[in-house]
C-alpha cells in the first residue's frame, strides 16, 4: 500500500509543478521482495568468496552450457589472473584475483557475472522488452526483439550486458541464469560445476538465511555484510567476503534504491503532461483569440 501512496504523492507533486523531478534519488525501497508479483519465489545464488579457489570450473561449465566459442587461453591457465577481466560477449562469467588484505598468502577470487537484480535496470530500460525479468528470478534476453540500442548497457549499474560490436548482426550477451536448465529442474551450470561449494544455487530467501547463518557462526571469517542483499534494491546473486568488498572489485556507492525507481517519477508525469498540457494550451489559445476579436482585430488567417 505504501507504493500506491507514493505514486499518488508523485502524481500530486507533478501536478503541482515539481513535474519531472520525482525526487527519485532519495526514495528508499522499504523491503526487497523475495517473490515475483505472482508469488513465485525468486531463485538466486550465494557466492562465498572465502571458499573460491579460482579453479575457473564455473567459467568452463558456462562456456559449454551456453555453447560459447572456446577461448584462446585454456581454462586451466593462471595467466588470465594477471589483469582484471570483464565479462565479454563470449564469456558470461569471469573469475578475477585480488590481493588479500587479511592474509597476503591467500589471494581472493571473485567471480563476476549478471547479478540478476530483483528490480533490474536493464529490463526497465529496454523499450522492446528484449531484457525481461522472469518470475523465477533471472533476467533473460530475447534476441528476436532486440534492436541493438544498448540502453541496457548504459543503465546496468554493474556493466554486465555486452554487445557484439564486431558483428553485422549483433546481439547483446549476458548470463541468463541458465534459465532453460533451471526450468528442467537442473542447477545453473556454474553452480553444478563448483567443486568447493563456493557457488550455492537456491531460493533467494533461503540463501539469505544461509548467508546470515555463516556470518553469525563465523564472525571473524566474514565481513558483516551480504553484498546484494540491499544493493540497487536487492540482487538475485549475492556475495560473502572476508575482506572489504571495495577491495575486491565491488562498487559500494550504488545505493539501495532500485533503478526503475529513478525514472518512475518522470514516467508517471508523462500521461499527466500529455493530457494537461494540450488542455492548458487550447485554453490559452481560445483566451487570446477571444481577446483579439474583442479588440476588433482580425484574428489572423490561420483560424
Amino acid at each position: 500500500m505504501t507504493i500506491s501512496r507514493r505514486n499518488f504523492l508523485k502524481v500530486a507533486g507533478a501536478a503541482g509543478g515539481v513535474l519531472l523531478a520525482g525526487g527519485a534519488r532519495s526514495a528508499r525501497t522499504a523491503q526487497v521482495p523475495q517473490t515475483s508479483s505472482e508469488g513465485i519465489e525468486f531463485n538466486g545464488m550465494l557466492i562465498d568468496t572465502t571458499k573460491c579457489i579460482g579453479c575457473r570450473a564455473c567459467e568452463e561449465a558456462c562456456n559449454e552450457a551456453n555453447k560459447l566459442p572456446k577461448p584462446s587461453v585454456s581454462f586451466s591457465a593462471e595467466s588470465v589472473f594477471e589483469e582484471k577481466r570483464e565479462t565479454t560477449p563470449d564469456a558470461y562469467v569471469v573469475v578475477n584475483r585480488f590481493p588479500n588484505g587479511k592474509n597476503p598468502d591467500k589471494p581472493v577470487f571473485v567471480r563476476r557475472q549478471c547479478m540478476h537484480c530483483v528490480e533490474p535496470s536493464c529490463a526497465s530500460a529496454c523499450l522492446c522488452k528484449a531484457m525481461e525479468k522472469m518470475p523465477e528470478g533471472p533476467t533473460v534476453y530475447h534476441k528476436d526483439r532486440c534492436m541493438g540500442c544498448r540502453y541496457c548497457m548504459i543503465s546496468c549499474p554493474f556493466d554486465i550486458p555486452k554487445f557484439e560490436f564486431d558483428s553485422a548482426s549483433p546481439f547483446v550477451r549476458k548470463c541468463i541464469g541458465c534459465y532453460d536448465r533451471v526450468a528442467k529442474g537442473e542447477q545453473p551450470a556454474c553452480a553444478e560445476a563448483c567443486p568447493e561449494g563456493a557457488t550455492l544455487f537456491g531460493k533467494r530467501r533461503d540463501l539469505l538465511e544461509e548467508a546470515r547463518k555463516r556470518i553469525y557462526r563465523n564472525p571473524d571469517r566474514y565481513r558483516q555484510r551480504i553484498y546484494g542483499e540491499h544493493e540497487v534494491g536487492g540482487t538475485g546473486y549475492m556475495y560473502l567476503s572476508a575482506v572489504p568488498f571495495r577491495t575486491i572489485g565491488f562498487r559500494i556507492d550504488l545505493g539501495t534504491t532500485h533503478y526503475p525507481e529513478l525514472t518512475s517519477g518522470f514516467l508517471s508525469a508523462v500521461p499527466l503532461v500529455d493530457i494537461l498540457w494540450p488542455a492548458v494550451l487550447f485554453g490559452f489559445n481560445y483566451l487570446i483569440s477571444d481577446r483579439e476579436e474583442e479588440r476588433g482585430k482580425e484574428s489572423g488567417d490561420e483560424e
Binding site: 529490463a123 526497465s124 530500460a125 529496454c126 523499450l127 522492446c128 528484449a130 540500442c149 514516467l267
Partner: peptide
C-alpha cells in the same frame, strides 16, 4: 510485439 512501457526510451 513487445511494449516496454517502463522505459524512458520507449
Amino acid at each position: 510485439n513487445a511494449f516496454g512501457y517502463g522505459s524512458v526510451l520507449f
